[in-house]
Write a protein that binds this DNA or RNA. Structure first.
Length: 276
DNA sequence: TCTTTATGGTGAG
DNA sequence: TCACCCTAAAGAT
């Protein structure tokens, strides 16, 4: 569950069973965090929040459990003390009187006091999260057009958590395809219409992915691809991981390149390079 | 069974 | 830009 929308969904699931409840027991796999098992025991869990791909389980005394799932971490919610049959390593467990919230495989877990939270190295400098309701299209356009960002290639900018928090590698490709913009284009090369398309794609696709659990294709295209049976796995995405397959709009084979150290997928006909 | 890849991120040069 | 770390699953042999 790696990108912002999936993390936010996981936080919602945790919230439903943890928020407002006393945490009766905790388990930390990492030795340096063991001391917190007794310190946090019996406190009430106030909320489960996300900032981009970062998650915070907040306790009523202000202490937070910070976690980042990277590529591998996975949250499970189960009835109390029932563990899924998985070969994965349990890294963190929060038990109420009814439920167990279990974090598997994640390696980036920490406990942060209220005083240290504002200075936390991983949270400082994050951009706005497009899942937040107060982030609208105008705000995204303004950010794209701001001095630190307008000269940067979109391929790199869209992965920068300081630009917008929560976007990741599949959203990058999907956003650029939806906006019809080549990955090497910079915001300063975009006319107002192109900037507006880009901002709309950032918000629409991130929020769609949140609603659908990671499907960025339009609902009708997704249904059509699934029903055709040919592209089950790839049905989620319009371009991402579709190298060599026909573009869903024009039929040209989808390109794959390395940009910003990660793979980006695009259609060279629907997303022409140069000024847009 | 071995190798490669992955929806993430850091730090060195 | 690169090497590297984390862990799991898919792909190649």
């Amino acid at each position: 569950m790696p990108e912002g929308p999936e993390i936010r969904r996981a936080a919602d699931r945790l919230s439903r069973v943890l928020a407002g409840r006393r945490i009766e027991r905790l388990y930390f796999a990492f030795p340096t965090l063991k001391k917190w098992e007794t310190r946090l025991e019996g406190l009430q869990l106030q909320s489960v929040d996300t900032l981009g791909k970062h998650m915070l389980c907040r306790f009523d005394d202000g202490t937070c459990i910070y976690s980042h799932n990277q590529l591998y971490g996975r949250w499970c919610v189960r009835p109390l003390d029932q563990y899924p049959d998985t070969g994965r390593q349990l890294r963190l467990a929060l038990h109420t009187d009814r439920h167990s919230a279990l974090l598997y495989s994640a390696s980036d877990i920490d406990v942060v006091t209220a005083a240290d939270l504002p200075n936390h190295a991983r949270l400082r400098g994050l951009g706005p999260d497009p899942l937040d309701r107060d982030v609208d299209r105008g705000a995204v356009i303004a950010r794209l057009d701001a001095a630190p960002f307008r000269g940067r290639q979109l391929a790199s900018l869209l992965l920068d958590q300081g630009f917008m928090a929560g976007l990741g590698n599949y959203l990058r490709s999907e956003i650029l395809f939806a906006a019809g913009i080549h990955p090497k284009v910079r915001p300063r090369d975009c006319d107002p219409q192109a900037l507006a398309r880009l901002a709309r794609a950032i918000l629409t696709l991130t929020r769609r992915s949140y609603r659908t659990g990671g499907v960025t294709n339009s609902p009708s295209v997704y249904r059509r691809l699934r029903n055709s049976g040919k592209a089950r796995g790839a049905a989620r995405f319009a371009v991402f991981s579709r190298r060599g397959l026909p573009c869903l709009v024009c039929g040209t084979p989808v390109c794959r390149d390395n940009m910003g150290g990660r793979r980006v997928y695009y259609c060279r006909d629907c997303q022409p390079p140069g000024r847009v």
